[in-house]
């Protein structure tokens, strides 16, 4: 027991793509499978772990998520759920994409799930033109090709705006 408390107090330093350093408690870092594997395989002997794909703003968000989940006891699942839904609530699309890519890179399953779900919810039940505008997807179908795609899976478009 004593040793696990000692371990919990260990800290490591993460460095964002834009050079900012974050001092993180080990038990918080363990929310990331990537960091967990690095710690397990003793790759973390370096003082600073660089995360070249993640900028400081995103890394701060990610670590905020990890800290909340690492500190909460399992009995507080309801509290965590409301934290999760608030966490992404007013986030702009750019930040959301940065976050989902960071969660993917750092292998943080819970964060990956809620970020992917948030993107899916943005697509769901919206007219396709609106989805294209939100995500800046250029429609490069010719009208004939688009009609053929709709025809091919006509059942999927029934009732769609």
């Amino acid at each position: 027991m004593a040793s696990s408390i000692e371990n919990n107090n260990e800290k490591l330093t993460l460095k964002s793509s834009d050079g900012e350093e974050f001092l993180v408690e080990k038990h918080v870092a363990l929310q990331s499978t990537l960091l967990q594997n690095m710690l397990d395989s003793d790759c973390s002997s370096a003082d600073v772990i660089p995360l070249p794909k993640i900028d400081a703003r995103t890394l701060a968000l990610v670590l905020g998520y990890c800290k909340k989940h690492a500190d909460a006891s399992s009995s507080k699942q309801g509290e965590l759920n409301s934290f999760d839904s608030e966490f992404l609530k007013d986030m702009d699309m750019g930040a959301l994409f940065n976050l989902v890519l960071a969660a993917n890179f750092m292998e943080i399953k819970g964060l990956l799930d809620i970020a992917a779900q948030k993107i899916a919810d943005t697509i769901k039940d919206k007219p396709h033109q609106e989805v294209r505008e939100i995500f800046h997807v250029e429609n490069d179908y010719t009208p004939e090709e688009e009609a053929a795609v709709r025809e091919e899976n006509r059942w999927a478009f029934e009732g769609f705006p």
């Binding site: 890519l101 919810d121 989805v131 091919e152 999927a156 478009f157």
Partner: peptide, 26 residues
Amino acid sequence: LPGNLISRILSSLPTKSAVATSVLST
């Protein structure tokens, strides 16, 4: 996005909505 993320996002949609994304672009 990498294929695994696209897969994850579309897997979070009902099948009908996921298939309907085929109309967005080629």
